[in-house]
Design a protein around this nucleic acid. Structure first.
Ligand code: MN
Ligand code: MN
Ligand code: ZN
Ligand code: ZN
Lengths: 141, 141
DNA sequence: TGACTTCTTGCAAATCATTCTCATAATCAA
DNA sequence: TTGATTATGAGAATGATTTGCAAGAAGTCA
């Protein structure tokens, strides 16, 4: 709650510096995002934001998420057969394992895979702008 | 045109054997799919199927695609910000490079990445049921 | 602290891909 | 052919996301 609050302050500053107006609803959503340890979807973010400011509408949640995505503050992920999920973009790059039974999302990163991806793209005359890698898994045993 | 027609015949047989009724519209869609060398979406498949049988409706295209997916005859891919795309499932497993400028889709497969993915899942106590890997790229130079 | 300009918001209606409902038509085994 | 079962077309319904618009806030500068 301390680290996250600090994060919120920094984000508000950074955004203001970039000419983004800091409204009540944007601040609420930033707080929710900074405190989220999971990968909530727009509805869940709306639910959490309302706890801080009951006036926040779902439309504004979507609008703010787009804004924050443009500002590289959040990342949007669309996993199979589910609405988009969001997380702050401050963590280093990683990909996801999705537990097919529980819906749990686990993060991982493999430098070797990242390197191989770049190699493969290069072999085809391309450079990777961004990529998506999701492992849909089931517990072993 | 020969190879594809052969493929259609085999598919029709295989499906009939599994108790699937072979209707005019299903045959049309199978022909379209067997002849497709790209990754068309439902609308494009509908357009092509109508050239064979003008009565085919979009609803039936969707219904048939679901059926064929259940029968492991087609695979559905949902790339970023676009409707689902389809391809026959007869080719061996591969992943995709998407050209951000042209929309072109290029296929590739890396055994090393596939192996690493399995390893990573295992490290977390999981086994990969299926995965998704897409490289969104731009031409180099 | 106003007054002003420019952006934001909430609400409801619009989109868009996909799915579903239902009355009618087609498949296929007998 | 017949009959039981399943598929189809048309259009309405869905669900996530976006948008238009009138009303409300933010930031700026006196
Ligand atoms: Mn993550
Ligand atoms: Mn492919
Ligand atoms: Zn990665
Ligand atoms: Zn793969």
């Amino acid at each position: 709650m301390n680290e996250a609050d600090e994060k919120v302050g920094e984000l508000e500053e950074a955004l203001r510096a970039r000419g983004v107006r800091m409204t009540r609803q944007r601040a609420a959503l930033l707080t929710v995002l900074a405190n989220a340890e999971d990968h909530p979807d727009a509805n869940e973010l709306h639910r959490r934001a309302r706890e801080i400011d009951p006036s926040v509408s779902l439309a504004t949640v979507y609008r703010t998420l787009s804004l924050l995505q443009d500002q590289s503050v959040v990342q949007r992920h669309v996993f199979e057969g589910a609405p988009a999920r969001f997380e702050t973009a401050d963590a280093p790059h990683h990909d996801h394992i999705i537990d097919l039974d529980t819906g749990d999302v686990i993060e991982f990163c493999s430098d070797r895979i990242e390197r191989l991806q770049a190699e493969i793209a290069a072999e085809h005359g391309y450079e990777v702008v961004h990529h998506r890698m999701e492992l849909y898994c089931r517990k072993k045993g």
